[in-house]
Design a protein around this nucleic acid. Structure first.
Lengths: 399, 399
DNA sequence: ATTAATTTGTTGGATCACCAAACTAATTAC
DNA sequence: GTAATTAGTTTGGTGATCCAACAAATTAAT
C-alpha cells in the first residue's frame, strides 16, 4: 500500500513519456470521444507518438476504442473514450452521523451506494467495518477487489501521510487511517484521504459536468460550517498545515457574533445552515420546532415565506463572503455545494446582487458563481475523485 | 519584442532538455556555489547530463566556474555560480509621485539607481523618457543595451498583454505599455509589466535573502493601501481578471468605516499608512501637522509614544487581517513590505500577539510572519525580478 | 616518495522516446 | 472508377539521457 506520488524533480525520457501518457489520458477524459489525430493536434505531439501511447493505454484497459461514423470526407476516425468497466474505485465519506460507501467507475458514475451509522468513537473498529461493507457490496456486484479507495472527512487532513490531523465533528485527532486500512485490507494498493471540501473541489474539477469549468476556482461547501477547496492551475491548494480553505472562519464582522472557534464575527456564523435555521425560527410565527436544513429547503420551495426570507438572509451573507474571496483570490469560478443548492433559484439572485454591489469594485471582473454540477453528494464523489485522479496522473511536478 | 512565454503542453526531447536546463540554472542560483556532482544528486540527473548542460550555460555566459578548495578527501569540485557581469536588466517602478529607474544584475544587485518625477498624465511621452533615462545611465556605466526591462505599477496589470488595465493611483486605464516601449525602443527584446505587490512577491521568491523561504507565501505590501502577491508552488497567482491579491479590500468589519472603494469596513481602512497617521493625529497632543509615514516611523523610533501607539494600533489590525489570511490560505510564510518594516520591532510583537490569539484556532499552524529580506525597494527589485525570472525560466508548464 | 582510497568530472556507447515522411487504409465526391 | 481527403501505421533518423568505464585531482597511509 501507500504508493506515494512520484515527485518529479527533472525530466528524463521515461518521465517525459509518463507525463505525455498522462496528458493524453486526460485529454481523452475531457474530450471523449476523441480521435488520435485530434489528440495530436491539441497536445502538439506527433501522430505516431500519440498512436504509440494510445496502444499502451488500450493494453492497460484504461481506454476504449470504437469506430466512428462522422459522414465527413476521408477515413473515419477511431473514437477513443475512457473504459469504465474493470476500473472501479471505492469511496467512503465519513460524516458525523452517517457514513456513505460507494463503488464508482473512473468516469464518476456511482454503481452502488449505501449508508451506515458513523461510529467515530472507535475508529480502529469502525474503519475496518466500512471496508467490510465495501467488500460485501463488491461481492454483490461480482467485481474484482478494489485496489483504490478514497476517504473524505470534515476536518484537517494530512493527505500525504494518510492521517486525520484534527476533526472536531468526529472527535478525531492524529488518527493514522492509512495504517488501520493497511492492517485490515493489505490488498488495497492506494488509500487516499482528504478533507471533504478539498475533495469536492477535485470532483468538480475532474468529474463535474461544467466540462472543466476552469483551471482555477473555489468550491464552497456550505453545511454545518463553510469549507472550501481552492483549485489553482488544476492543483488543490493544501496549505502549509494542511488547513487551506477554512473560509468559514474568515472574519467578516470584527467584534460581531461569537463563533464556536472562540473568535467573533466569523463568516459561517452568518451564512451556514445553522444560521439559516436561526433566521427562520426568529422570523416564523409557527416555526414547528427547529427544522433541519433539508426540511427548511422543502418549506421554502413549498412557498413558506419565512423560510424563503431565511434563505435570502443567509444568501446575502454568502454573497458578502464571496465578494471578499473575489477581491482577494479573483478566481475564474466559485462553485457552491451543500443543501442550499436545493433552493438555488431563491438564493442565486440575492448572492449575485450582493456580489455585484460589493465584489467588483467598479471594474470588470470575470468570476462566475455556479451551483455544483455534481449529480451525487460532492464529498462522496470527492472520495472517488481522489483515487481517480491518481489513476489518471500518478506524479506531481515540483520543479 | 514581446517574446511570449513558451506554453508547454507536452514533453519532447527538446522541451525536456530546456526544463532540465532551467532546473540546473535555478539550482545554481539557489545553492551557489555548487558543484556539478551536487547538482546531479539534488536533481536526480546523471552526472554526464549535468556536465553537458553546464557546458552550454558556460557558453551562454550565464554561469561562472571556479576551482574550489574544500580540504576534503578526493578531487576538489569546480564551484559553479551565477555570472553577474554582462547580464543586466532594467527596472522601472512607477509610483504616483516618483518613478525609480535602476540597472540590476541577475543576482539582484542594484548597480545604478535614480528617481524622476512621475508624469502620469501623458504616458505616451513619460514612458519613453524613462527609457531614455535608463539609456543615459547605461552610457554612464558603459554597459551594453538592455534587452530585458521590467516595469511595476500599483494597479491591475494584464502581464500577458503588457497592459495596465486600471490604476487609480496613476489614472491609467487600458494603457498598452508594450506598444509604447516597442515603438520607442525596438531593441528591447522583452518587456514585462506587473502589479507592484505581485512583482515584490516574485523578488522575495527569487532574490530574497530568506534563502527560498518557501514555495508558497504571501507578500503583503502595506503602503497607501494593502496589496498582496500570492505565491503558490513558485508561481504568482494572477487571478482571472489579473486582480488576485487585492487584500486591502477584504471586508473585515461589515458595516464599519467607509472606504474609498465605496464599501465599508475594508481591511486597509484600518491598517494602511493613512490609518496609522490618522491614529497618530487623534492621539498626539501636538501632532505637528499631519506627518508622512516615514516621518512618523522616525518619531516612533525616537521615542514618541503617540507614534508608537499609532503603529501598535495599526499592527493590531494588520494581525487581524493576517489571521484571516492564515485561516483561508494557510501559507507557509507571510512576508511584509512597506514603510512599517522600519518599525518592525514595534509592530511585530503586536501582530503576532493578535495572530496567535485569532489565527490558529487552537491547532498547530506553521505560518511564519517575516519582514521582507529585500535590501532595496521591493517594487523596484520586483521590476528587475520580472526580467530575471524570464532569463532563468523561459517557459510555463500548463499540463 | 609511493600507493591506496576517495571524490570530481569526462568520454563513448547504449537506450529510449519523439519526430518526419512515406505509406496504407478508409471514406466521399465527382 | 478515379481523385481527393482524412485517419492511422510504419520505418528510419535524431537527440537527450543513462550507464559504466575512465581520467584527474586530492588526502591519508605506508
Amino acid at each position: 500500500m501507500k504508493k506515494r506520488y512520484n515527485q518529479i524533480t527533472s525530466i528524463n525520457p521515461k518521465v517525459g513519456r509518463n507525463i505525455n501518457r498522462s496528458i493524453i489520458l486526460n485529454a481523452i477524459r475531457e474530450k471523449q470521444p476523441i480521435s488520435r489525430t485530434k489528440i495530436s493536434k491539441i497536445t502538439g505531439l506527433n501522430k505516431s507518438t500519440v498512436s504509440n501511447i494510445v496502444t499502451s493505454l488500450l493494453d492497460e484497459e484504461l481506454v476504449h476504442e470504437e469506430v466512428s461514423r462522422n459522414n465527413e470526407i476521408g477515413r473515419n476516425p477511431l473514437d477513443l473514450s475512457i473504459k469504465r468497466e474493470r476500473n472501479y474505485v471505492g469511496a467512503i465519506y465519513v460524516d458525523s452521523l452517517l457514513t456513505t460507501l460507494a463503488i464508482v467507475d473512473i468516469d464518476g458514475t456511482v454503481l452502488d451506494k449505501r449508508s451506515i451509522k458513523t461510529e467515530s468513537a472507535n475508529p480502529g473498529a469502525f474503519i475496518p467495518s466500512c471496508l467490510d461493507s465495501l467488500k460485501q457490496m463488491l461481492r454483490e456486484n461480482q467485481s474484482r477487489p478494489l485496489k483504490n479507495i478514497g476517504v473524505t472527512v470534515a476536518g484537517i487532513v494530512d493527505s500525504g501521510h494518510s492521517r486525520v490531523v484534527y476533526s472536531s465533528n468526529l472527535g478525531w485527532q492524529d488518527l493514522d487511517i492509512g495504517t488501520i486500512v493497511q492492517e485490515h485490507s493489505p490488498e488495497v494498493e492506494l488509500l487516499t484521504i482528504e478533507n471533504d471540501a478539498k475533495a469536492s473541489a477535485l470532483a468538480e474539477l475532474i468529474l463535474g459536468k461544467h466540462r472543466v469549468p476552469s483551471s482555477s476556482f473555489i468550491f464552497l461547501s456550505i453545511g454545518r460550517g463553510i469549507g472550501a477547496g481552492i483549485v489553482v492551475d488544476n492543483h488543490i491548494l493544501s496549505g502549509s498545515s494542511h488547513a487551506a480553505g477554512e473560509y468559514g472562519h474568515m472574519t467578516l464582522v470584527e467584534g460581531g457574533e461569537p463563533c464556536s472557534c472562540g473568535n467573533r464575527g466569523c463568516w459561517e456564523v452568518y451564512a451556514c445552515d445553522r444560521a439559516t435555521v436561526r433566521y427562520y425560527t426568529a422570523l416564523a410565527t409557527h416555526p414547528n420546532g427547529s427544522p433541519g436544513i433539508e426540511e427548511l429547503a422543502d418549506r421554502a420551495l413549498g412557498g413558506d415565506q419565512s423560510a424563503v426570507a431565511a434563505f435570502r438572509k443567509s444568501a446575502e451573507y454568502i454573497g458578502l463572503g464571496i465578494a471578499s474571496i473575489i477581491r482577494t483570490i479573483d478566481p475564474q469560478n466559485i462553485v457552491i455545494g451543500g443543501s442550499v443548492v436545493k433552493v438555488w433559484n431563491i438564493i442565486y439572485p440575492v448572492i449575485m446582487e450582493t456580489v455585484e454591489r460589493r465584489g467588483f469594485l467598479g471594474k470588470q471582473r470575470n468570476t462566475v458563481v455556479l451551483a455544483t454540477s455534481l449529480t451525487d453528494s460532492p464529498p462522496l464523489l470527492g472520495a472517488a475523485a481522489l483515487s481517480i485522479r491518481r489513476i489518471f496522473t500518478d506524479y506531481r511536478i515540483t520543479l
